[in-house]
Design a protein around this nucleic acid. Structure first.
Lengths: 208, 208
DNA sequence: CGGCCAATTGACGGCTCTCAACTCTGGTGG
DNA sequence: CCACCAGAGTTGAGAGCCGTCAATTGGCCG
């Protein structure tokens, strides 16, 4: 990984108190580990480019808890070690800062952490609903809508993650993900463009 | 519901700062609502007897996010309204206090709220893993172990909730819950006693 | 070109849901 | 007191969704 001093992230709505500190830019290759389960939670991360995911691990099966997209902050916790691992979905650039530095710069850090934890909890709770009570097709549809909303909201987007990642996020097999996407495509709810490797869903997912 | 001044809950590990305030005891009948989705989050609740659950609702299907057992505190949020409803599983006694009173008594309230939110998040994340990647039998086994651990840890317990509640917590149908329990019983991993209405699993669930 | 990986697609089986019948307990009212 | 009903639970039959196994395609890279 390539470290590099930078003035700090500019745009992308950082909470107050997080903008006044010097962030370092770090590049991660696809599939590389950002931090592991049990690692000291000394840093806070801000996605500038690419995407990462949070891996809930029970040792046997992969379960992705969340995707981190450009603009997202992750790695924030009230404990001193990470409970879960984070990895880069694709080549990713993160802005990184020491948590201790933040603590010095942000008098209301506890408040800031609480806000982020609450937001994470909110996402986890809506994901519970998805995992527990939705069919494969509904999961895929909800996933596309979530990504569309978070990435641009324009109705066209490039999904950085593989089918396997999507499957592990939604609690499905990768084949089922593929079939569900094919079905939506047949129904003209979505369409793909491009001959790149990770196919690119485009058009308004589900017409809504 | 019957309200009644009380000196405040004693035992059951309340976080510091929550013990010095006057709690009111309130009784709830089975199936009654404690608070609804969107209600002002003016109170914090502490389970003294009985059990409640948190209902994640997408309008179509029931998904229970958590069970609140004696000793648990719930209703804590960093927002000003509840995102989800809470109901009484059985006849339940709660200790209740105004959040505003707490704020006056607990200088480090934000820290306290953060701790509880973090704990809730932890539970939600492990539940994600359960919902996404486990078979019906594994879900039931995990559920019994969780309840055993939280209720007494003695290997014998009385489950206050119905099969339907368990099903809605685990993302299963109530018939599947019933069948999975029957299977564990046949395998002598658990046994039932009692002729009460809600049958009572007893013995070490899954042998450990 | 050949190997590799992501993705797609088909075949098949099984787990779980749905529908349904039945039991048991408790409560209510004649 | 007992008949009746309602609700919780159990169990069976059948269907369907989804997971697993497998073969194939296509792009990328050494």
């Amino acid at each position: 990984m390539v470290a590099d001093q930078a003035p700090g992230p500019d745009e992308l709505g950082l909470p107050a108190g997080l903008t006044a500190v010097p962030w370092a830019k770090i590049d991660y290759k696809r599939d590389s580990r950002i931090f592991g389960e049990g690692d000291p939670a000394d840093y806070v991360y801000h996605v500038k480019k690419g995407a990462g995911y949070k891996l809930l691990n029970d040792g046997r099966r992969r379960q992705i808890g969340a995707f981190h997209l450009p603009g997202d902050i992750f790695g924030v916790t009230s404990e001193d070690r990470h409970r879960f691992a984070a990895e880069a979905v694709v080549a990713t650039t993160l802005a990184v800062v020491k948590r201790r530095i933040l603590a010095e710069a942000d008098a209301g850090l506890t408040q800031t952490i609480l806000g982020m934890t609450a937001r994470t909890l909110k996402h986890a709770e809506s994901h519970l609903l998805l995992l527990g009570r939705q069919s494969a097709l509904e999961k895929i549809a909800a996933f596309l809508l979530e990504m569309d909303k978070r990435m641009a909201g324009t109705g066209a987007m490039t999904l950085p993650m593989t089918r396997r990642d999507i499957a592990d996020y939604l609690g499905l097999s990768l084949e089922t993900v593929s079939r569900a996407l094919a079905k939506l495509k047949r129904q003209r709810a979505i369409s793909f463009t491009g001959n790149q490797h990770p196919p690119v869903p485009r058009g308004h997912p589900l017409g809504g």
